[in-house]
């Protein structure tokens, strides 16, 4: 093999490699182009049928229930318009709490319950010390923190 051919093959190989890696990553991402659906889309049936997808929303305050006897938890996810009940067995992330944004991955069962195999916590871009968060909560009319802003 001449050096020129060798070089050509090497360059071609690298370009194919970069293209392939980018292609694979893009494919993986395209499936998530809409990374999650909101409860309104779920209840109105605008979600993929027969395959798993993600639901994102706020955990409704007071909705978290542990099913006695096993590790299953149930909670309601809302976009302040419609609600979806999520059933999940496993460890919840540290940031999971009522009023917090979450994204659950799984599929709908026959009765409209979303059976999740993964629950991720979504947080926003706001950071503040605990004392500030406390005083914001107490302030009359002040938008208390703890919720999830944009996107959910």
């Amino acid at each position: 093999m001449t050096p020129r051919r060798k070089r050509l093959l090497l360059v071609g190989g690298i370009l194919v490699g970069v293209g392939l890696a980018t292609g694979v990553a893009t494919m993986a991402f395209r499936e998530n182009l809409s990374y999650f659906y909101n409860p309104t889309q779920v209840t109105e049936g605008q979600v993929p049928r027969g395959r798993s997808f993600r639901v994102g929303g706020l955990v409704t305050k007071g909705s978290l229930k542990r099913v006695p006897g096993n590790e299953e938890v149930r909670f309601v996810v809302t976009d302040l318009n419609r609600d979806v009940t999520v059933a999940y067995t496993g460890v919840l992330p540290d940031l999971f709490r009522e009023g917090q944004g979450i994204i659950a991955h799984g599929r709908l069962d026959g009765s409209g319950v979303f059976v999740a195999d993964e629950v991720l916590a979504k947080h926003d871009e706001k950071y503040m010390p605990p004392e500030v968060a406390q005083s914001l909560k107490k302030a009359p009319g002040g938008a208390g923190p703890g919720g999830e802003g944009k996107g959910t």
């Binding site: 690298i14 993986a28 991402f29 998530n32 990374y35 992330p93 991720l120």
Partner: peptide
């Protein structure tokens, strides 16, 4: 891992940043 509950997920930000690493390496 501790905050979201996962090391990795194919969301837009993470995927495009990974492609950036491929670009540098390429």
């Amino acid at each position: 891992k501790p905050m979201w509950g996962t090391w990795w997920t194919w969301d837009a930000r993470l995927t495009s940043e990974l492609i950036l690493l491929f670009l540098y390496l390429g």
